[in-house]
């Protein structure tokens, strides 16, 4: 708990606003942000807030959850390919696991991830749900 607070806090912008990286040399978009481009190893990486729109690239259904996620079982964890090209590993929400398909259009929403117990802090972050047409 004492060690987690600063770590969770440091990630808040990436998690709340889906801010990742884009390599200024090769153009690759990736998430989370890193100092070095995982594609060309270039060291000139810009921060970028992604659109949040993407498609399910692959997924798995979780029946035995890690600590803190028990209340969501069964739930789907997916690799989402964003329109910008980056792959994001994230929980899907507002969807029955049997409805999930590869290629399904999804969009990013801010949701609760977990809490540090009943008197601890609440950790919020990105999840993806089936896209709601406007």
């Amino acid at each position: 708990m004492a060690l987690q607070l600063p770590r969770e806090w440091r990630w808040r912008q990436e998690r709340y606003r889906l801010i990742g990286g884009r390599c200024r040399r090769c153009g690759q978009a990736f998430f989370p942000h890193r100092e070095i481009c995982p594609r060309c190893l270039g060291e000139d990486v810009a921060k970028e807030q992604f659109s949040g729109r993407g498609r399910v690239y692959s997924y798995a259904t979780v029946y035995k959850a890690p600590v803190g996620f028990e209340e969501y079982v069964p739930y789907v964890v997916a690799l989402v390919q964003l329109e910008e090209g980056a792959l994001v590993a994230a929980q899907l929400t507002d969807v029955d696991p049997t409805e999930v398909q590869i290629g399904m259009p999804v969009e990013c929403v801010l949701r609760r991830w977990r809490t540090n117990g009943p008197d601890g802090n609440i950790i919020y972050g990105y999840k993806f749900r089936p896209r709601l047409e406007s």
């Binding site: 969501y72 929400t93 507002d94 929403v109 949701r111 609440i122 919020y124």
Partner: peptide, 9 residues
């Protein structure tokens, strides 16, 4: 609200 929703989300 779903289990991962609250007034903030």
């Amino acid at each position: 609200a779903g289990p991962d929703e609250d007034a903030i989300t």
